[in-house]
């Protein structure tokens, strides 16, 4: 049976919306780490689409750190029946190369983007934010800054770091001091007992929204060897399997923290996205589904736009 058309949906996902100090071009984004730096896939075609970027509100770029990182050894991915474990280990080009090479190219191509950064202490977040602001302040297509407070795959223990509300607040404050005219987001780990407390802390320190959620810690065993498949044992679990888990976390934040939420976790269809909007999310990010199909987010944006138009006429 086809699900009933959600007649309550009255928002055009292709319409710009205000998030803190910034007007964001649309509500369907791609999640960090799932669409590289927003420079891949431009040449791709699909029936009915000009490009995989059609209708995207923002690409959240792959997280960069102060220095380039080679990332974790292979294997880095494990597919499960309804999702995937990843242990990429924040492989990235580093902040300098991002500012020098990536940001101007995104600007040139007109890709709306939210930069994602990770650091090991609040001061470092502040320095990175300042560097971005100094060079990128004049860019039209740079819309926001997402603080990755929750990568599970690095030795420095991003998770523990992002689990403490005081540290989260300190990181947000340091970035907010530097970046005042772009949307500031904190991406939260779901691997805590009280995610709303993290959201409250981030909100009090000045974020415009929290992105919820990052991946869940998971592990898969190779039965042939009896050992974990991933060299670092644990990975970040994502994909359709985590949709209800992510929805529960978002609901908790919306009800207890009162801060705008960008929903992320397990979205593969327009209906999945609508569930986050139903709970009060202001935008959503498409992650693992974008890895399967570069047109996933564009397809979701189009479908939600059609539903919006249908309800408007009706």
């Amino acid at each position: 049976m086809m699900p009933a058309t959600p007649q309550w949906w009255r928002v055009d996902p292709l319409e710009p919306f205000q998030l803190g100090p910034r007007l964001i071009p649309g509500r369907i984004w791609t999640a960090s780490g799932c669409f590289a730096y927003g420079l891949t896939g431009h040449e791709m075609t699909a029936p009915g689409f000009a490009s995989p970027f059609a209708g995207l509100g923002a690409v959240v770029t792959k997280t960069v750190t102060p220095a380039a990182r080679a990332g974790n050894p292979m294997p880095r991915l494990v597919e499960t029946p309804c999702g995937a474990l990843n242990s990429i280990g924040l492989e990235n080009v580093g902040l300098d190369a991002f500012i020098r090479d990536v940001m101007p190219e995104l600007e040139k191509r007109g890709v709306p983007f939210v930069a994602s950064i990770a650091a090991t202490c609040p001061e470092q977040f502040g320095e990175m934010a300042r560097a971005l602001q100094e060079t990128g302040g004049g860019l039209r297509h740079w819309h926001g800054l997402e603080l990755n407070l929750s990568c599970p795959n690095v030795a420095e223990g991003g998770h523990d770091f992002g689990k403490d509300p005081h540290t989260v607040a300190a990181c947000v404050r340091a970035a907010r001091e530097q970046v005042t005219d772009r949307a500031l987001l904190a991406k939260l780990t779901p691997n805590v007992g009280d995610i709303a407390a993290l959201a409250v802390a981030a909100s009090g320190a000045g974020v415009d929204a929290v992105s919820a959620v990052n991946t869940f810690v998971g592990l898969e065993v190779d039965l042939a060897t009896g050992e974990p498949i991933l060299p670092r044992r644990f990975g970040g679990y994502s994909g359709p399997a985590i949709l209800p888990l992510a929805l529960a976390k978002v609901d908790e934040i919306v009800r207890k923290a009162g801060v705008p939420v960008v929903g992320v976790g397990g979205i593969a269809t327009a209906e999945d996205a609508l569930k986050f909007f139903a709970l009060g999310a202001v935008a959503v990010q498409v992650g693992t589904a974008q890895m399967r199909d570069p047109f996933s987010a564009a397809t979701i944006a189009r479908r939600l736009h059609e539903i919006y138009l249908g309800n408007k006429r009706g």
């Binding site: 780490g33 799932c34 669409f35 590289a36 891949t40 896939g41 791709m44 792959k62 080679a70 990332g71 292979m74 294997p75 880095r76 991915l77 995937a84 990843n86 990429i88 492989e91 974008q290 890895m291 399967r292 570069p294």
Partner: peptide, 26 residues
Amino acid sequence: EHMGCGYGACKGCVVPVADGPDAWRP
């Protein structure tokens, strides 16, 4: 290599390539 996306988006399938005399990059 085991691949995720197949189009360079996820960095799930890396191969070490030379990057200078004694250095490499994924």
